[in-house]
Design a protein around this nucleic acid. Structure first.
Lengths: 212, 212
DNA sequence: GCAAACCTTCCGACCGGACGGTAGGCTCTG
DNA sequence: CAGAGCCTACCGTCCGGTCGGAAGGTTTGC
């Protein structure tokens, strides 16, 4: 990631650039990585551009060469996550059409993405409202697509008689989404609870209920 | 809330203070009300002390007369909410000891508090991490008490055979809490969904499952 | 084939403005 | 007149963003 220090003599005034297999795209990536880490820990507003640059061993100048603004970077991170979400939704829809299987898959997928994209998810939910007008609208639109997909699957289950007739698909979906989304507050990849186990428990609770 | 403007001539340089039934405690309250509104809409960091004062038709000077710091105000708001939570938990525990009834009550209570204390809840979840060291620890401690109460009730249900034996009380509780907490993102008091209806749906889903 | 012109990538000093907090004084109550 | 309540003016700091240039790579013209 960081460009390897070349073997040039110390006398060289400036740090040597473009050594070996240097790829300028790495600079951009390391800025994003740095930002993901800092935004997750401290939040968007409490992270300065300077800090992001420092952690990536670069300067503000480099940052503003690669991003239009701090908001631009936030937008990029949000979109990265949403794209992954939309792709996964499509995969699930392309799979089994049994509503129960789909719900199970959705729960597992949601929890997995919380675990894998932990920083993205945290930032997404905490800082979404800080996007301005147009950007916010676009991000919200994509988020709504994801939720609509959830709701569609539940509704399908009701319509086909697999789920109880008195289930309100919207409400049930909000519950499902919330249950999984909330995991970003506590789910710990290195903790004792495996994602699969949590997904299994959630699915059982939602589909079969707690009653013995 | 805002002090009524007196009938003094315009020539009076300063706005007349302490008119009618003026109570200094109202000033404090109006600052809190103003902050609740602004923190919910814009977030803690994006709200300046000046704005809080402006909206309460006061000045920064007044603010710092009533609060030690901006953080102090945040702490106050968090504690206000947590106290309400703890009180409600005690009430539920004092009621029926049927695990199913308790879970139903917990869901209803959680959703109600989300609706009633909407601003508090939003601020609580969004800005909790901005509290520093000791304050954060105390707030987290109280929050853990609430969650422990939830978990205790679920575990009780499992132990007494009311709930399925393979239910992991911790995980189920996280799911329950998340489902309800997430409502702060969408539950709209003035919308078409009543709190009771949502609570009924959530309870049914969790206790009896979605399956027909 | 080689140098001049140009491009990309990055540096570092700087600016304007906003914000949290303070100091000191004024006003009205008790 | 003591003191609570509040206001005005101000300070130091920090932060997003800009700008001129420096160092290397790449293309072009001959």
């Amino acid at each position: 990631m960081a460009r390897a220090t070349s073997a040039r003599p110390e006398s060289t005034r400036r740090r040597q650039r473009w050594p070996d297999g240097y790829d300028p795209e790495n600079t951009r990536k390391s800025l994003i990585t740095s930002a993901l880490d800092l935004f997750e820990k401290r939040g968007f507003d409490r992270t300065s551009v300077q800090e992001i640059a420092d952690q990536a061993q670069l300067t503000k100048g480099a940052f503003y060469h690669h991003f239009e603004s701090k908001d631009d970077l936030l937008r990029h991170i949000q979109e990265e996550y949403l794209e992954a979400q939309l792709t996964a939704i499509q995969q699930i829809e392309a799979g089994s059409d049994d509503p129960a299987v789909r719900v199970r898959e959705l729960i597992r997928f949601s929890l997995t993405s919380v675990a894998e994209y932990r920083a993205h998810v945290t930032i997404f939910y905490q800082e979404r409202r800080y996007l301005t007008g147009e950007l916010f609208a676009e991000v919200t639109r994509k988020r709504d697509l994801v939720e609509a997909a959830f709701a569609g699957m539940v509704q399908d289950g009701v319509t086909r008689g697999v789920f109880r007739a008195d289930v309100d698909a919207r409400i049930a979906t909000f519950g499902l989404v919330g249950m999984c989304a909330w995991a970003y507050q506590w789910l710990n990849l290195s903790g004792p609870l495996s994602v699969d186990e949590v997904a299994r428990q959630f699915s059982a609770m939602v589909l079969e209920g707690l009653y013995a």
